[in-house]
Design a protein around this nucleic acid. Structure first.
Lengths: 222, 222
DNA sequence: GAGTAAATATGAGTACACTCACGTTAGTTA
DNA sequence: TAACTAACGTGAGTGTACTCATATTTACTC
């Protein structure tokens, strides 16, 4: 073999075109698909939106959709990732909350999520609850797991902030898990709440959080 | 038109064959379908069971399945009807419970349901949670509504038995609804509970019911 | 440029839940 | 018995989410 003699200025690794052209195209395609899906989900609901319609609107072939997302549910997950991140950011950003009691922070967190979800209520009812099925690939996907972990870590963070000396609290370890179930129940309640402005949900939220936090402070369930 | 002259002994209404031959056949077909479905659901899970397989096992055409049940989920509902009725009957039958505190009755109710569901855990995870979707035809079907109503009426009955003087209790009206959400959350928890013998679920049940009933007695959430 | 391998896009194909137009049969009347 | 009607059964057909073998494009080397 001839020794590798770099030719001229050794620019080999970088051809004329910009490096990330492929990555950029990929990201753009992904974005077109999620945007198309979100638009259709919001206007027609989850079930009435076909993957074919998503593909057409995103200007890709049907198969391409499944190169980016394993299932139709999985496309919806992208939406929830945005939703959770947005809610966490909103609570972090709110200076007034910083020294507020725990129940107010949690209330703000959930209310922020609900606000984000409101325009998409149709599709959430179908997609989100679907994801709770143990048989759902989504329920056990790494992405979904990571998302829940991120959310619960933030909740844990809020708890620690407010109850710093209660690390050994009998309930502390269970609190995030309990909060997760509570949150799911809350969403179900919200989805079915027919009261004007979903008042019932907000009222129940308010009272149940106050109670839950009181329990946490006392450090016991019974 | 000729006047209606009953011929001979007026046995007209009843031809030779027994009256309910058709109804009996119908009931038998329905039973074959539910039995086939239940067997397949339990052994292969809800999703892996095709309606075609159910039809084959029940020895009917595929279309026939849908003459009896609107959807695959709907077949599963039949199972939950049995489950709820069985649990209610078990609590009613148990003499020892009659004068027990409310939380014991509710514990017995849910435990009885869980026992019934245990062999079918696979399929419940898929079918039951599916039914929670607002878009699900099942969720708003009359049958499902009636089933929930029957279940909650029984819960209400247990509450009234134990807290007779608390009719005007601020929480009394909300208690069954709250119990419903609690029950759903419980089931989700149970489905995901990996602890041996589902101990975590039972322990959580025990403590949370005690707490809930105490709240009910005091008549306030906060 | 030409050559290449890997990444990405494609759309016909598959399996499924569910529909529907039609055939078959039980129940009734004459 | 024969004829009629409504209930019931049937299976080919439909629309859908998802797969996969193949075609196309990109990034890179010489």
């Amino acid at each position: 073999m001839a020794a590798r003699t770099p030719s001229v200025t050794r620019r080999a690794r970088r051809p004329a075109r910009p490096r990330g052209r492929r990555a950029a195209a990929k990201a753009a395609t992904r974005e077109r698909i999620t945007a198309a899906a979100l638009h259709l989900f919001a206007s027609k609901g989850f079930d009435a939106t076909t993957t074919r319609a998503i593909a057409v609107r995103a200007r890709v072939a049907e198969g391409t959709v499944f190169n980016y997302f394993a299932t139709k549910e999985d496309i919806a997950l992208h939406f929830f990732e945005q939703e959770v991140d947005s809610a966490i950011a909103a609570v972090r950003r709110n200076a007034r909350l910083r020294k507020a009691p725990l129940e107010e922070k949690l209330f703000a967190l959930i209310q922020s999520q609900i606000e984000y979800l409101t325009p998409y209520e149709n599709f959430i009812g179908a997609a989100f609850v679907q994801a709770l099925r143990p048989s759902s690939t989504l329920a056990f996907s790494l992405r979904a797991f990571a998302l829940r972990a991120r959310y619960l870590a933030f909740v844990q963070e809020l708890i620690q902030e407010s109850l710093p000396r209660h690390g050994a609290n009998a309930m502390a370890w269970a609190a995030p898990q309990a909060f997760w179930i509570y949150y799911l129940g809350m969403l179900l309640y919200w989805l079915h709440d027919q009261s004007p402005g979903k008042q019932n949900t907000l009222a129940f939220l308010d009272r149940s959080l106050a109670l839950g936090v009181r329990m946490l402070r006392k450090g016991t369930l019974g």
